[in-house]
Design a protein around this nucleic acid. Structure first.
Lengths: 344, 344
DNA sequence: ATAGTGCGAGAAAGCGCTTTCTCGGTTATC
DNA sequence: GATAACCGAGAAAGCGCTTTCTCGCACTAT
């Protein structure tokens, strides 16, 4: 009865039988090949419609050598930054008829390359966000992942576009903003130790230090999430700094929450800044001063780069560099008289 | 050398040649079939390792009739609720070796069924979040989507588990909480008109009204995002209500932000509640009273249900119902003396 | 009228893999 | 020592589709 083989699903063969033509002709019709007689084509279409035939994408992929799917590897889907990249990527790719497969490494960077490889083989291309992967490992796997687009990383492998946010410049802008407000003792609440984007921030701060020897910049250990910021309150207070550059908005929010619990006023007692400008940053109390990154747009760009690679357009690895925009809100204000280590 | 055919990639044939055996044997070895002589197996493994052979998943999928991939259809990836479901789903599925393909309908519900169908055919199963799809449409496509798990929807189709949050009970709990605080004039800032979960809230409020005839409950038009809440300030003030139930946390946050701009105090002047308990809800100022839904866990459960279906375990469509937990925070407080329509 | 041309559709190969089927070579049994 | 039972590996079919190849037919040109 119109269904065949073990699969149970309607296949091209069923349509062929129903329309009284060969598989080949059905395939031609379904793919808009006009070398088919209009009458026959109509018959095939009618049969297909009646059987509700939908081509099996797996068979199609095997024959065509493409899946119309791209993959994205992220270290943590709970992080708003990666959510935004995913969103931008997904939207842009969908517009060109591509779907996205997600591979969340859950911060287990040891399995990131395997994950990336697996994802890549199921897809036509890959976007890789792997801030903690070592350079060596990245260099090793990058060639095998082509077409590949990197986020916030670079590689020597040819034809691998990198989309990178200039975190170095970003922290300098933020630090400059704090200094203008009169702060002379700053602290940087760092991100995860091996994070590439943290390295960029660190480099930026070095540059800043060199240009502003009068400003003291304390380095504090940190992480990338809300709790990190929350737990860092003591360290922050002990540093005696009045202007805090948090690794990102999440950390900044955690820190502000912790400071609030201690009865400290932001920005009255301490100014706090974040990074990324996630959607919620403008709605914290006080609203967060941050380095705004057009992160959804970055995801969108990632698709455009990847698309060029997939289509083999000779776009000599242009990549892209994004300048964060200093977004001054209410969490930063004039410095109080310098404090020494908090008593306690 | 060592590479064959147009594909350029190493295939099973290359390994077979290198190891001096047949395709079949390589396949057996790669799949841990022990009917192969250990010496030969070792030779095959050596050849595979040397060539860095990785089986092509598409060929494998076609032969095996499974893709080890599941799909999820969401109306809006920017919504923290769906992000959380995705996260829970992805994590749980990954643990069983499955990947997830995302299909964002971008609120275009007219294309949701097509999207769902396409996603389904590339995958072994589907999780469908389609709050705005009509019941009729859902009934029509549900059978063709099996294995299928529904989020916050139900269907008459057999063997389609539904994971639903009891929003009806949730709003009643919240309304009850407000009444206990002395509020007698409430307003519900509704969600998107055709949303199934909004319907559930509405039903819950009807029940509440019947049980509390002394309480006035005004219905206000709304939506599901931050801006909706922000724009609703006037309507809220005009309603004269002192206790506002927002459709979800996002709307509540927008509303609080708008009220703040008007110089109103929350909860001093007006109490505001949300729904969902998204991660940021506890960090708003004041912290948001809300109906907490274990949404990531729901995503996880979705996988478990789907897995049972894929494995054809005879789990007679158990589905699951989640009771929101009233999470009282600082955005609700005792009612002021009743206000009439705000002057102005 | 006959060979030449072109075009439309079926036959078949192939995408990369798994798996059944088959057969040659061992080992076991009497 | 001959027959049976067995086991391991190759040959081949098949998963569902696309595409090249091929062939038959109709139509044109000489």
């Amino acid at each position: 009865m119109a269904r065949k083989s073990a699969s149970g699903r309607i296949g091209i063969a069923d349509v062929a039988v129903k329309a009284g033509v060969s598989h080949a002709t059905v395939s031609r019709v379904m793919n808009g090949n006009f070398t088919v007689d209009p009458d026959i084509a109509a018959r095939v279409r009618a049969a297909a419609a009646e059987l509700k035939y939908q081509p099996n994408p797996v068979g199609r992929s095997l024959a065509l050598g493409k899946t119309d799917t791209i993959g994205i590897v992220v270290p943590d889907l709970a992080n708003p930054t990666f959510q935004a990249i995913l969103r931008g990527l997904s939207r842009a790719a969908a517009q060109d008829g591509y779907r996205v497969l997600i591979a969340d490494s859950f911060e287990v960077s040891s399995e990131e390359s395997i994950l990336a490889g697996e994802a890549r083989r199921r897809c036509d291309g890959l976007v890789l966000c792997a801030p903690r992967m070592s350079d060596a490992e990245l260099e090793e796997i990058a060639p095998s992942l082509h077409p590949l687009v990197l986020i916030n990383r670079t590689t020597a492998a040819p034809n691998v576009p990198s989309l990178v946010v200039d975190y170095g410049q970003g922290v300098q802008d933020i630090a400059g903003h704090l200094v203008e407000l009169g702060h002379t003792r700053l602290a940087f609440l760092a991100g995860p130790p091996r994070s590439a984007s943290n390295e960029m921030r660190l480099k930026g701060l070095e540059t800043f230090r060199a240009a502003h020897p009068e400003v003291e910049v304390t380095m504090l250990e940190g992480g990338s999430d809300f709790d990190t910021g929350h737990e860092a309150v003591d360290a922050v207070l002990q540093s005696g700094a009045t202007g805090i550059l948090a690794f990102n908005d999440l950390v900044a929010m955690g820190l502000m929450s912790g400071l609030h619990e201690r009865g400290l006023d932001v920005p009255g007692d301490i100014s706090v800044t974040g990074f990324d400008d996630i959607p919620f940053a403008r709605y914290t109390t006080p609203a967060l001063t941050t380095g705004a990154v057009p992160i959804t747009e970055l995801g969108e760009q990632a698709w455009h780069q990847l698309r060029a690679l997939i289509r083999k357009e000779g776009n000599e690895t242009p990549g892209g560099r994004y300048q964060p925009r200093l977004e001054v809100r209410a969490s930063t204000g004039p410095a109080k008289a310098p404090r020494s280590t908090v008593h306690g």
